[in-house]
Structure formats: C-alpha cells, structure tokens
Nucleic acid binder design. Sequence first.
RNA 1: GGAUGGGUGGCAGAGUGGUCGAAUGCGGCGGUCUUGAAAACCGUUGUGGGGGCAACUUCACCGGGGGUUCGAAUCCCUCCCCAUCCGCCA
Length: 421
Amino acid sequence: MLDIKFIRDNVDLVKKTIQDKNIDLDLDAMLSLDKEVFALNQKLQDLREEKNALTSKIPTLSEDLKQETIAKSKEISDKIKIYETELSTKQPEFNEMMLLVPNIPAKDTPIGKDDSENVILRREGTPRKFDFEPRDHYDILEMNDWADFKRVAKVCGSRSYTLKGAASRLEIALHMFIMDKLTAKGFTMITVPSMVKEEALYGTGHFPTGKDDVYYLPKENLYLSGTAEIVLTSLHSDEILDESQLPILYAGYSPCFRSEAGSAGKDVRGLIRVHQFMKVEQYVICKADIAESEKWYNTLLETAEELLKDLELPYQVIACCTGDMGAGKYKMYDLEAWTPSQNKYRETHSCSNLTDWQARRANLRYRENGTNKVKYCYTLNNTGIATPRILAPFLENHQTKDGKVRIPEKLRPYMNGKEFL
RNA sequence: GGAUGGGUGGCAGAGUGGUCGAAUGCGGCGGUCUUGAAAACCGUUGUGGGGGCAACUUCACCGGGGGUUCGAAUCCCUCCCCAUCCGCCA
C-alpha cells in the first residue's frame, strides 16, 4: 500500500509503475473515487459537528426547547444517514483499489514484462565439467535409496517428497548451517506456525491477488502459509515499536505450503517444485530509511551468497524486472544455482526490499527517536535456505561418477565430519 | 468434542445512556530536590483524518459489522477473537 497523499501528488509516477508492473488497476477511476469519498467524509464531518453541538446541550435545556432541539437533531441525522449509505459502498470500493496500488520500484530496476526480461547481474563460480554423464538429482536419490518418490506419491499425491537416510540428514544439516550463520549475524531464530488468518496474507500483499496459490482450510478458516514472512510481518502489526527496538532480525523457520496452481506440468519430477517444504527465512524490520534498508538488503543478499559459496554451488544474481517482481517490491534479486541436469540456473533464493509497502498494510509502525513521530517500518526478506529445492543443485553438482555425493568442506561439521553422503 | 468467562489507552484496571477519549494505578517523558542515583513531589503522556502559517480547532475510534436512541464504551442483534476448566491427543 502507498500513502494516498503520495499517490495524489505523484499520479504520473504511479501510473507508470502500474503499467511497468502489469497491474490491473484504473488509477483515474481510483482517484475520482478518492475525491468522492473525501467530499463525503467532509460533509459528514460538518453534519456531525453540527449534530454534536445540538445533542450535547439537550440535557440542560428546558422542556420545550428540548423537544425543538431533538427535532432539529433528527433532521441532521437523516441527512447523515443518506451520506453514510453512499459512503458505505464507495469507501470499501476505494479501499480495495488501494490494495492493488504497487510499490514504486528502485530507479535501477529493469523494466520488463515477465521473467524473460530479468537481468543477470553477475555469475559466481564456474559450472563443473563432468568427465562422465551426470545424473539428475532424482536418479541420484533413487539409486542411493535416499528417497521414495513413487510410494510417497501413492500416499500424498504429486509434488510430494520424502528424503531418507543421509539425504534426510542433509536437509536438516542445511537448516542448522544457515541458522548458525544468521545467529552469528545477530538474527534471532524463530519458529512460526504455518496456519494463518486471512488478515496476515493481506498484510504481506499475498492477498487479494494471490488467492489461488494458497491452501485454505475451510473448517478452521485459516490458510496454509507459503512462507514464514507472512507470520513475521504480522507479528508486530498494530504495535508502535520504539525506534530502539529496531532493527528486528529474524531467522524464521517454518513448513511452507504452495498450491503451485499456476505451474501445472512444470518441474513435476523431483525436488524442485513441491507443495510442502521447509524454509528458513531471513527477515528484517528496520526504520524508514532507504539507505538503512539498502544496507540490510545487502546483508540478506550476502548471507545467501555466502551460503551458496560455502556449499560450492555456482550461481548467478538476477535483478528481477518490474513485470516479475511483484506489486509490493521496491527491489528484488533472485539467486539461481547451477543445475547440471537442466543445463541452467534455477532459483534458490529471492531477496526483496518492500520499503513501507507491507508495513502500511500490516500497520507496523515505530516511534522515531527525537521527533517522536510515528512512522511505518520498512520490511525486507530473503530466503535463508529452502529445502528440498536446494538439494537438486547440491546433489547434482557434487555427484561422483559412481553415484556418491561429496559434501563441501564447510558443511562437514554438520554431517558428522563425513566427506561423502 | 463438552462447559464457562472475557475483549476498554504502552500495561493493569474502573466505567451499564449525556458533562466520557474515558477514573485510578503502573510504566514513559519533562521538571524540583540530590555530589550522583533512588525515593518523594509537580507537570505531562493514545492513534488516524479534516481545517489552520500557527496557537488551536474539529471528526472518528473502547474487538468487527449492524440496530435502538435526540444522544451509545454503556442497551439489542450478529460475527470474530482470546482465555480457563473437563475430555481426547503429539
């Protein structure tokens, strides 16, 4: 959400953003509705003021004056009712449109219509040259008895996974590995539920537009969260934090659920795209300062890059273009790890700065030191690690000719010091 | 699943029809006192919107929505949420 005053004062910029980000919103219609709503509120305020002045006097008036004043007050109430009725349809309509207004992207954001126009910023590491025919992660898992895709599909349907033995240990080790990295940087480990109320999804911006991607539990009237970000954003909503409490740094751990409704047929085999997975989310709430938020953005990005380097995975950094970045994002970079079986880089991390766009929705505020002014926080997030997806490049990059998998040195302390899985 | 109780300001907690945006206490902030601190005392202290250069003024908000009434934190309806006890269970 943006400040309505900002929208009024920057109509052209907001319109351009709506276009660049491919948002279905008629800003002119919204602004004319804004004018109507504003005028109605103005009239209502005047009438209420008039009425309050009358009714507050009533207890002290003589009997005949009292009757006269009551009659007058009734007349005003009738007028108020008319305007209120009008407002009761227009205000919600306006509010809904406000939820669609996108955040203004950073100036250096590539303009583009979809992920095909994302820009590769840089590549780190060199894809390995194999002196044998590399297997894909699915086959590596099967041949080592590290997974049982067929049986689990029987029980749980497609896009489900199991990991067994060493692969299962690897999954947990990776989470501990990133947790240690993040706590060393001052992040607080936090495990959060995955079942969330609807408001939380509006708060992050996943709703109203992303309803198809989210599982719904009708009996509980709760949704299955696709990321810890949803709970973390709302944890402090409706609070006014003190500036001294900021930044809040969370390493949030949760099961994540995604219906993948828009990805039918894509990545059905293996670990890349499953309905339920585990994720450590890097999450920051900081003060409303773009330089400060950029600093944290770089920390989030660096941490993820360190992880990929420690795991010895070649990767590239992608600047997501306006059409691919999502309405709420000010900036979004993806990290993609080299995946030999597909001969391409596949997304493992997604790093975003939302500035105050989410905080406005979630009503996440703080009191500024010195001025005592109440401001909206800035929020940022990045993947810490998401499993099992990252196991695909991991297993494939580190496989040996005989079907074993080498463990990168930095991870060995988490794997009983072993060199191979 | 069964049975209760409850949602009021940063927190605790009064308030059952008007003078209530809301007593009181705690906390916070400012000050007096003190070498300093504590204690004590005095003052101050919600959010959002409108008007105004400002002083200030005004509207809304006591879980959400609706209703009764000239007037609602207070009465009625409805929804949501939370807590506790019992049962079941990781």
